[in-house]
Design a protein around this nucleic acid. Structure first.
Lengths: 345, 345
DNA sequence: GGCATCAGTGGTAACGGTTACACTTTTGTA
DNA sequence: TACAAAAGTGTAACCGTTACCACTGATGCC
């Protein structure tokens, strides 16, 4: 456990000054004679010298790291997003500090503080609650913030990357309407999140455009964590006039919703058509394979990293960006024509 | 975008020296009069002062951060592991830098360099290839390394946390043997990984103990990434004497294996019994619900963080630890008694 | 009353890099 | 040949924090 070599050790060993070593380290910051460079490189190699990130960050007041603040890694949607973000970031020579909020406002606030202390150049986040001042403080400090998947309307100066939530929900609804369904249930995320609201808005728009009434009883806003999906299904199915189709617009609740349906007598799609928001590989493995709105996670990752890194390097125009990507509608077997059944007495 | 306040700003504003502010910041490093403390705290609050992590790290030669080096976040097993690790780490006031290797040796080597530069106190990792000297260099530098899920035998001075892979495979095999299966296929991870080898070893042991021949043709070592699971299934099923049961001991390949089976005419469990290594929530949602070896991810996370943080604080005895946790066998409907069918002509 | 102890505070040298600037030496050009 | 420009190198200040040490009074104890 010998203490690691410093830049001065290298300089002494190579018979040059620290400035020269530093210039070798940071290509392009000044001229170095080829011979000298070779010599220095050799010594660096021999001493297994690694410049310490902390010292570098202290001097330059920013660092080549982006913070990734996600709601919940146990949710495959976020897990895959994280995977892609880490990947894309690395392709650009940038590292990622990962923090999770577990959808908790306090943890989110704490995490933002951490990111401030870490003086990251940019932050990619899925905001959970409102923590308005915290986010504002972060941006005031010059940290570039990119919201992905969700957003907070009240905040300015923040880039946003999302899927077209309203349009996606509209597509899903139109699909079911086209199949003859008139009573359609919708399970969404919390009304405090933009995704939770936007999807419902798109759903409403489709229904209204088709001249169908929207029964508020059939719209459920439930949290992303926990197992509220099953309960929501239970409530919907025990309505006096239960829906003949349900859209689960809350990615995290698909599993628990599905489990509840399996436990019941309800057959899919004969008794109930189902469309879910998800990008899980297993949606095609269950019976019947699910009709899904597939979120283009890769695109979300690419764009958010692009923005985060671009801003950090000052390559982008001042004007904040809003990137919306289309989700893909994948029809499988969980949605079918509405039964022509006579109304139950 | 005003530049953030420093400890000197706080000191000046509060009318004290920087030493006092530092002592307020780091409880227990020296006496501070109650009045003075209150005053300083007030100023810190007012200036929204956050000590810069970089400066702190430079001074103390370590930091309160652990590196988490995982193979593949898109794999739900690792994703959940990451989630738990981040969670457990935070509970101990420690942050996590996440890196992924995508099962690639070169990326792993790069990542280890990064961790050195970042001067993390500890690293929790799922080693991919051998990168022996890299790992050695890391430990030589005094970084505490904890391998989780997998291990590298040749390396000393590294803590290990795994499930009892051999025993789990043995359990799975015994379950199938007990159901009357005699030709059992096994799909494992790469032979270069300890999990890949250990599971096969346990399988062999069970077979031999039951006096059953182990046909090497029925044992497949395949990578964790990609879709080799489907191909392996294909090969197994087109054997002259196909197995009546298959254990998929490669978590990452369960999905692709399952998809292949769905595409075929084979019925589960009538024609083929299936036991898979996995801890995915969806294994109970497919038809039939899968018999699984459930890996106790929480335990893996708790123990590895415990070790990583404990070592960093010097709380643990020098002696390296090896923690093995039991996996849980969960019987569902994908495994059934072997058919008493007459051999096909 | 003298002296050791200690709470409370301030000054300042590290920590390990980067970088502005000064200083040689080489090269290019009139 | 002379002189300007450019290439190559070294010195030292700085980034923001902690830790060590020195200093001042107040308190305790014989």
């Amino acid at each position: 456990m010998k203490k690691p070599a410093t830049i001065r050790d290298v300089a002494r060993e190579a018979g040059v000054s620290v400035a020269v070593v530093s210039r070798v380290l940071n290509e392009g910051t000044g001229p170095v004679a080829p011979d000298t460079r070779a010599k220095v490189v050799e010594v660096i190699e021999r001493l297994a010298y690694h410049p310490r990130a902390a010292a570098r960050e202290l001097q330059q007041r920013t660092r080549s790291t982006i913070g990734l603040l996600l709601a919940d890694l146990a949710n495959p949607f976020f897990a895959r997003l994280a995977d892609r973000v880490v990947w894309e970031a690395r392709a650009r020579g940038v590292h990622v500090v990962l923090l999770t909020t577990q959808e908790d406002q306090h943890l989110e606030a704490e995490s933002i503080d951490t990111l401030i202390e870490r003086s990251v150049a940019s932050v990619i986040a899925t905001p959970a609650g409102d923590n308005l001042e915290k986010w504002k403080r972060l941006t005031d400090l010059g940290v570039n913030v990119v919201f992905v998947d969700r957003e907070i309307d009240e905040l300015e100066g923040i880039d946003v990357v999302t899927i077209r939530n309203d349009a996606s929900a509209e597509t899903a609804a139109n699909h079911l309407i086209g199949l003859g369904h008139t009573r359609i249930g919708f399970i969404s995320g919390p009304a405090t999140t933009s995704t939770g609201r936007d999807r419902v808005a798109g759903f409403r728009r489709a229904m209204e455009a088709a001249g169908l009434a929207v029964d508020d009883e059939l719209i459920h806003h439930i949290p992303f964590r926990g197992d509220a999906g099953g309960d929501a299904i239970g409530v919907l199915l025990s309505e006096p006039q239960p829906p003949s189709a349900i859209i689960v617009g809350n990615t995290a609740q698909v599993r628990s919703a599905l489990r509840r349906i399996k436990q019941s007598e309800i057959r899919v799609p004969e008794d109930l058509s189902l469309v879910v928001f998800d990008d899980n590989p297993w949606t095609e493995l269950v019976s019947p394979p699910l009709t899904v709105i597939r979120q283009p996670i890769d695109m979300l990752a690419v764009h958010s990293v692009e923005l985060a890194v671009g801003r950090a390097k000052g390559l982008l125009p001042e004007q904040r960006r809003r990137v919306e990507v289309d989700a893909e509608f994948v029809r499988r077997s969980s949605s079918a024509a509405a039964a022509q059944r006579t109304p139950t007495p």
